[in-house]
Design a protein around this nucleic acid. Structure first.
Length: 769
DNA sequence: GTGAAGGGGCTTTTT
DNA sequence: GCCCCTTCAC
């Protein structure tokens, strides 16, 4: 064991402290049992955290293996690791920098056997949990009692985040309430099913690690000894289970004091109460950890004063907070631009046009982001951005790993890695179609249960269950294929290189007939599905490239834990679209906050929740403070939801921003008949959505979802400068120039009334005249 | 057991 | 508007 505490730490090199203000410097240098860094938005906390870690290493106060740093996303973890490495080089190897979930998986994979799990356990995402719960809800006819899959799932998740398991819950619940009794039954069955499938759901990853540490101190002890410095970022968004995990890890062991704990957070940016985040963790930090020191970082190095003024003014309306005021010395900067569209599409068009203008002025697309409250808002934005030929990327929403064909392919891999996982087995049982239906599946499950074997084992005994020859052969064929793949993943000698995941997946997809079935299909969507399978194969290739020794189980872990923000690719040169939640922790030179309307932000669903409106305000605050130079606030008078158009009202939050900070290109008061009213005062549209505003007569354009990949296709439409065209929305215009080639050909068109636009020739709703 | 057609219900945010 | 589930015909 290396020396644990140096009485007189060596002064860190001056390069490490360079450019830090006194507060930041203190946050880097302070040494003690507990440190809370209250870091306002943009106050350089990432820099402080990295330098704090680097200084611990540089002065030899800590070995890399003694450091555990928790970040909010895998991407943030990767960046922090790189930055520390940039300062101290390979002296940083061996640190644990990861998310709560990744760190817990790492611990659980090592220790699973201690409490009845196997190391190859599956991680169930929310879709898997719901699939499991669906069967239970149906089985117990719980829906007639008003227990839907969604609310059972939410309730179980909440309980697990509070470290309440089914047995603990059974002691709290009133057994004479039939609804609660039924819920308890389902909770129990769900937990049992997870355990027998050798699986953890997302919430288990944290909660079970805590149970493990509490039940088996000898398991916890090596971790308590090992991690002498624990740092947690975004502490305001930790839930009770995560809090408890940190408490467990910082407990003293025998002669050793507890690990030194550093947490960084900002209660104004707490936006995850809905998933159990407890702001008290940060507010009561000083009571929890005696001798804690607090450092406050208020100077902002990100945004202009105008943006900060808006942010400060908005957040000041939350009454239950410690006053904090962000400031900068970089100057006022540009005014915030406001825009009110007639419809969501009109709003989106403003966004697209403005992005193009910024781009012409030299701003790279990757410096621009568009935020929204709900994923549903992407549709209109996407349609317009495609048409306007603005390159964009949606973070989160795409859900590659949630697509049926990807889930199928992953289920094949899971069936190999974790034969106990009946959910994965059932999923692949009849995809591709093998003539194994519901009846056969139920029979197999029954056989497994009667004989006390797994579902996977039952497949091996297909011959003994009275199936027809075709069905029996199909089952045996699948079973043999899985055996073949399993043999690949278990190399003959321990030091032989593992067979790449790519080969395993390729074998499974081919020999199962999965790809052949897609190829043979006449469903046009299957072509896209086939491409997705190929995309997944490419992902496995990439995985092996980055991690040549990576095993199948590592691949499954990595893909199970990708967060939306992990998809951000700084080199892509595209505009980033994401929800306000995903935006936390990021920054962009130009930011568009869209849909700033009542019922959307604050969201209608938040109104009845305690603390709901305040949390929505923090969400708005988080969005505003992502912007470095330019901030746009936009909204629409009408919005489509459920295929119906409804009228919307400006968000109350708009009125909280001092009027002189916003320059309205088109204010809410200017849009309706009888325009001229002020934004802030009355919060309704004067005259509603009536009146034939130009934006509203738009013809409907069909934009099928991305699975089909089938958008409008003009084929090889020939266009040359000088040609006249007609556009569905913009009317007639003249082509000014053509750039790009093939599918990326872009036409610059001067429209007679709609101004100048860039259009993707292949997909724009245009005809040549 | 499979596929097409029609009806009901739903969306806040995420690891 | 779309997804998922049920129903019905083969």
């Amino acid at each position: 064991m290396p020396q644990l505490v140096q009485p007189h730490p060596v002064e860190p090199s001056s390069a490490l402290l360079e450019g830090l203000n006194p507060r930041q410097r203190e946050a880097v240098l302070y040494r003690g049992p507990a440190l809370l860094i209250v870091a306002g938005a943009g106050s350089g906390k990432t820099s402080v955290l990295t330098r704090r870690i680097a200084s611990l290493l540089e002065t030899r106060e800590a070995w890399p293996s003694q450091i555990l740093a928790i970040t909010f996303t895998n991407k943030a973890a990767g960046e922090m690791r790189e930055r520390v490495r940039g300062i101290v080089g390979h002296a940083s190897d061996g640190m644990w920098i990861s998310t709560f979930h990744s760190a817990c998986v790492r611990i659980l994979r090592r220790e699973a056997e201690v409490f009845g799990y196997a190391s190859g356990f599956t991680i169930y995402d929310s879709g898997d949990s719901r699939a499991l719960l669906k069967r239970l809800v149906k089985q117990y006819e719980a829906d007639v009692m008003g227990l839907s899959v969604a609310n059972v799932a939410a309730r179980i998740s909440k309980l697990k985040n509070e470290l309440v398991d089914a047995e603990t819950f059974s002691r709290q619940v009133n057994p004479s309430d039939p609804k609660d009794a039924l819920f308890l039954t389902i909770f129990r069955e769900y937990s049992r099913a997870l355990q027998s499938a050798n699986a953890f759901d997302f919430d288990d990853l944290i909660a079970q690690t805590v149970y493990l540490f509490r039940a088996f101190p000898h398991v916890a002890e090596p971790y308590r000894r090992r991690f002498r410095h624990i740092l947690v970022d975004e502490y305001q968004d930790t839930n009770h289970a995560q809090y408890a995990l940190i408490r467990e890890l910082t407990k003293p062991v025998a002669e050793l004091p507890g690990a030194s704990l550093t947490v960084v957070g900002d209660s104004d940016q707490s936006i995850y109460a809905f998933r159990g985040a407890d702001i008290r963790n940060i507010v009561e930090f000083e009571q929890d950890y005696r001798d804690a020191t607090v450092v406050l970082l208020e100077q902002n190095y990100r945004s202009t004063q105008t943006i900060l003024d808006a942010a400060n003014a908005v957040i000041a309306n939350n009454f239950d907070r410690v006053a904090k005021n962000l400031f900068t010395d970089t100057g006022a900067g540009a005014k915030i631009v406001g825009f009110t569209g007639y419809s969501g599409h009109d709003e989106a068009q403003f966004v697209a046009d403005e992005i193009e203008r910024l781009h012409r002025d030299g701003l790279d697309y990757r410096e621009v982001a568009v935020f929204y409250r709900t994923n549903a808002q992407t549709r209109a934005l996407e349609e317009i951005l495609i048409r306007s030929a603005v390159p964009y990327r949606i973070l989160g929403g795409t859900k590659f790993y949630e697509r049926a064909e990807i889930k199928d392919a992953m289920a094949y891999l899971i069936a190999v890695a974790n034969p106990a996982d009946a959910l994965a087995m059932r999923r692949i049982l009849n995809s591709p179609k093998r003539g194994i239906g519901q009846v056969t599946e139920t029979q197999l499950a029954g056989y497994a249960e009667r004989n006390g074997i797994t579902f996977r084992e039952a497949l091996r005994h297909a011959g003994e269950q009275g199936f027809g020859p075709k069905v029996a052969k199909a089952i045996t064929g699948l079973s043999d294929l899985l055996d073949e793949a399993t043999a690949m993943t278990a190399p003959p000698s321990p030091d032989a290189a593992p067979i790449p995941v790519f080969d395993v997946l390729a074998l499974l997809m081919q020999k199962s007939g999965y790809v052949d079935a897609l190829r043979a299909s006449r469903d046009p969507q299957d072509e896209a599905r086939l491409e997705n399978i190929e995309e997944l194969l490419a992902v496995t290739k990439e995985f092996q490239k980055n991690d040549p020794d990576g095993l199948l189980i590592d691949f499954l872990t990595e893909t199970a834990l990708v967060a939306a923000a992990d998809e951000l690719d700084d080199s892509s040169g595209t505009v980033s679209l994401m929800t306000l939640h995903t935006a936390k922790g990021l920054e962009f030179r130009a930011v568009f906050l869209t849909g700033i309307e009542e019922d959307l932000l604050p969201h209608r669903m938040s109104a009845n929740e305690p603390g709901g409106p305040s949390e929505e305000r923090r969400l708005f605050y988080v969005g505003i403070t992502r912007a470095k130079e330019r901030l746009y606030l936009s909204l629409a008078m009408t919005r489509n939801s459920y295929g119906e158009t409804s009228v919307s009202a400006p968000s109350r939050f708009l009125a909280e921003i001092p009027a002189e900070l916003i320059e309205w290109r088109q204010s809410p008061g200017m849009t309706g008949p009888g325009a001229g009213g002020r934004v802030a005062g009355s919060l309704s549209w004067s005259g509603g959505a009536a009146g034939a505003a130009p934006g509203q007569a738009k013809p409907k354009t069909e934009w099928p979802n991305r699975v089909t990949g089938k958008v409008r296709d003009n084929g090889e439409l020939e266009l040359a400068p000088g040609d006249r065209i007609r556009h569905d929305d913009f009317g007639e215009g003249r082509v000014q120039a053509i750039t790009g080639s093939a599918a990326k050909r872009i036409a610059e068109v001067q429209f007679d009334t709609a101004g100048r636009k860039r259009l993707l020739v292949k997909v724009a709703p245009i005809v040549k005249l």
